[in-house]
């Protein structure tokens, strides 16, 4: 299954996929100062939350490319004929998507933190939160990608499906920025992320199977 994961990682980085996510993430992060105003104190206070919201929106970007093309090109058919379980395929896709999207995003968060004038301590909390939360986000993206695969206008539907389900990640991710009560939020963020990672492959596998009929 390493071959399957590597193939998806390569596809994630190929064609500027990761660069697009990073660019979109930074663009959203840059938009907030324009909207809120250039007051450094205000920006520093909301900055962590801005990074989380931007990460969520950026995670939505590649959703349509995760499963749809494989369904269309018959790759999933060929895998299934070979007896590969679709849940396993989905699990590989979650791992591959995380590898292709989380590290660039976490690097870009450093730049965003500079743009928003975040303190080092806040940045550290953002990065730890992203490290815990992005696996859940990747799992959610793959499950959503499988659900909308083959739909016309899938990307619009993907947003409607994925963003509400990602709200717990956003709440606990932003909650963990609080230096006093953040520890509990980290644990809850981890719990949400684990639930998503554990459940998404099965949801995605079932969705792919339904899409193939």
């Amino acid at each position: 299954m390493l071959a399957l994961t590597l193939r998806d990682v390569r596809r994630g980085y190929a064609g500027g996929g990761a660069a697009l996510v990073v660019a979109f993430f930074l663009l959203v992060a840059v938009l907030f100062p324009f909207a809120i105003g250039p007051d450094a104190a205000v920006l520093a206070r909301v900055g962590g939350g801005v990074i989380w919201a931007a990460a969520l929106l950026a995670a939505l970007l590649p959703v349509e490319r995760l499963v749809g093309p494989d369904l269309e090109s018959g790759v999933l058919d060929q895998l299934r004929v070979r007896g590969v379980s679709l849940a396993l395929v989905a699990a590989c896709k979650v791992v591959a998507h995380w590898v292709a999207f989380a590290p660039p995003l976490m690097l870009a968060a450093v730049i965003a933190a500079g743009l928003l004038d975040l303190s080092g301590a806040t940045l550290l909390r953002v990065e730890i939160g992203l490290a815990i939360g992005t696996p859940g986000l990747a799992a959610l993206a793959v499950a959503t990608g499988a659900l909308v695969a083959g739909l016309r206008g899938g990307s619009a539907v993907a947003g409607l499906v994925m963003l509400p389900l990602a709200v717990p990640l956003l709440i606990f991710g932003a909650g963990a920025l609080d230096p006093v009560g953040g520890a509990g939020a980290f644990k809850l963020l981890g719990a949400v992320s684990l639930v998503l990672v554990a459940g998404a492959p099965f949801v995605a596998g079932a969705a792919m199977r339904a899409g193939m009929e």
């Binding site: 299934r80 070979r82 193939m212």
Partner: peptide, 28 residues
């Protein structure tokens, strides 16, 4: 026959590995 679609009735048995040439090429 490839097991990709469940039959509405009846049953299909294939005792060995299957290779499928479908309409889609399944090549990157």
């Amino acid at each position: 026959a490839a097991g990709l679609l469940p039959p509405a009735e009846g049953e299909v048995t294939a005792t060995e590995r299957i290779a499928l040439l479908a309409e889609a090429a399944a090549l990157d």
